[in-house]
Amino acid sequence: MREVKIETTLEVYEDISELPKAIQKLMGSAIDARNNAYAPYSKFNVGAAILLDNGEVVIGNNQENACFPSGLCAERTAIYYAGARFPNANILKLAITASSQNQVTDKPIPPCGACRQSIAEYEIKQDQPIEIYFMGAKGKVVKSSSLANLLPLLFESSVL
C-alpha cells in the first residue's frame, strides 16, 4: 500500500471588484442570469456565464421542476446551450454565482458533482482547460484554472 496525496491550487479574491474587468463583466452576466433563475422549490438561484473563444457569451440558470430530477443546473444549461449553438467553439471561462432566497449567501458556491462532470467532458473534448470563477451572492470569489482542480480523479471516456 502507498499513500497518494492530491493537492490543488485555487485563487481567492476578496470580492468581485478585485477580478479583472473582463471577468467582472462575465460575472455580471452570471448575476443577471441568476436573477432570472426558476427555483420555486429550493429557493436557491444559480446563474452561469460562459465566454467562448469566438467572443460569444452564453448564459444559463437553474430551471427546477416539481419532479426534482428533471430540473437542470445553471452550469449545464449554459454548457449544453453553448455546445448546441456554437459546437466548434472552445469554452475559455465560466463564471458561476448562487444565492439563497432564504438566507445571505456570502461564501463561494462551487459547481455540483454532475456539473463538474459535464464541465470535465468539455475540457477533455477541447483539450484545453476552462477557467472557473465561482461566488455566492456577495463576498469572496474563487478561481480555478481548470476543472481538474475541482475534480482531480476524473471519470472520462478513455476508460469506457
Rank of each mutant, 00 (worst) to 15 (best):
P111T: 02
F44S: 06
I124F: 07
P129Q: 05
N36Y: 13
A89G: 02
N45R: 09
K140M: 11
S99I: 14
K5D: 10
L10W: 08
N54H: 07
V104I: 15
L151W: 10
K125A: 11
I119F: 04
G71W: 00
E121D: 10
K143L: 09
R76A: 06
F86M: 04
T8N: 09
S157N: 12
M135H: 00
G71R: 02
I31W: 01
L151F: 14
T9Q: 10
Y80W: 13
I50G: 00
S70N: 14
C115T: 02
K5E: 13
A84Y: 10
P129T: 00
G139P: 02
S118W: 04
Y80M: 12
G139Q: 02
C67D: 12
S146L: 05
L160S: 12
C67Q: 12
C67F: 15
I79Q: 01
Q103P: 05
S118R: 07
G55E: 02
D32S: 10
P111E: 00
L154C: 11
E7Y: 13
E3N: 10
I23H: 03
A120M: 14
M27C: 06
K25L: 14
I23V: 15
V141P: 03
D32T: 10
G83K: 12
G47P: 02
E7V: 12
I16L: 13
I96W: 00
S145A: 14
L150A: 08
A89V: 02
V142H: 06
I31Y: 06
T9E: 12
N149E: 15
K140T: 09
